[in-house]
Amino acid sequence: MPGDEIEVPKELREFMLEGAEETFLGQKNGAKKQYRYGNLHIREYDEKFLLHTDKIDPRKDPIGHLVHDAPEVLVGLACAIFGSSQVTKKILNNNSKKKSFASGLLSSIIIGYLGYSATKKIKNYWE
């Protein structure tokens, strides 16, 4: 949630909460590392830390986190699955299986990304 993030410049204060765990969960957004401390999500960059609070800790409830904090990921996955299945069906009627796999994969990436991007823009607009 870009609007809700707090920036802490490293020159002002180099810190890390005791008990914060480095994690791969979450979008890095160019960060060197990211940490979780309960619902607190901390991203570390060269010059600063960015912090925000998630509604749901993804380590405890990954699906709940996706639904409440990152719905764009679910929409992107749904678009990728549905879109590629439709493209693959059309291609299977006309071409070989080799072409259908490549086209299905490419279409799932493109359609999934479009769904993800559109949902993220809508989410950011409403925040």
Rank of each mutant, 00 (worst) to 15 (best):
T88L: 03
F101Q: 07
L77N: 00
D46Q: 06
D46V: 07
V67F: 05
H68Q: 08
M16H: 13
E11M: 11
L17W: 13
V75A: 04
P71D: 00
K98S: 11
G64C: 03
I56N: 06
S85C: 05
E14L: 02
I91T: 12
G19P: 12
I63G: 01
R43Q: 10
Y35I: 06
A20R: 02
E11F: 09
P58H: 01
A70V: 05
Q86N: 08
T53H: 12
Q27F: 13
D46H: 07
N29P: 07
K10D: 07
V73C: 00
L74V: 03
S84A: 05
N94P: 00
S85E: 08
H68E: 03
E18V: 15
Q86S: 00
R13G: 00
P58A: 04
S100N: 07
K10Y: 03
L74W: 04
K32F: 14
A78V: 12
V67D: 03
H41S: 14
S85W: 09
D61T: 02
E14H: 01
K97W: 13
K10G: 07
S100V: 13
E72P: 02
F15V: 13
K97D: 08
D54T: 09
K90I: 12
Q34A: 04
Y37W: 14
A31E: 07
S100W: 04
A31V: 04
K10I: 10
G76H: 01
V67P: 05
E72S: 02
N94H: 10
C79S: 08
T88A: 02
S84Q: 03
L17E: 14
F101N: 12
S84W: 05
S100T: 15
K55L: 12
R36H: 15
V73W: 08
L74C: 01
E7I: 15
A31K: 04
A70I: 04
H65C: 11
D57F: 09
Y45I: 04
K10F: 06
S84Y: 01
Q86M: 08
L74I: 07
E11A: 14
E14P: 02
V87D: 02
E22S: 15
V8T: 01
E47F: 11
E11L: 11
L50R: 12
L66G: 00
F15Y: 12
N93T: 12
F82D: 00
E44M: 15
A20Q: 01
G83T: 04
L77Y: 04
A31L: 10
F49Y: 15
L66S: 03
H68P: 03
R13Q: 13
K98M: 10
P62C: 02
G19R: 08
R13L: 15
V75I: 07
S96H: 10
M16E: 10
I42T: 02
T88Q: 00
D69C: 06
A80D: 06
K89A: 09
G30F: 12
L50E: 07
N39K: 03
A70R: 04
K90N: 06
F24L: 14
D46A: 10
E7Q: 11
S96C: 08
L12Y: 06
T23W: 10
L66N: 01
E47Q: 13
T88D: 02
N94Y: 09
L51S: 01
Q27S: 15
S85K: 10
E7P: 03
K28D: 13
K98C: 01
I81S: 00
L66A: 03
K32M: 15
Y35V: 05
F82V: 14
R59M: 10
H68F: 11
Q34Y: 10
R59K: 13
S84V: 05
L50S: 04
Q34E: 13
V73E: 07
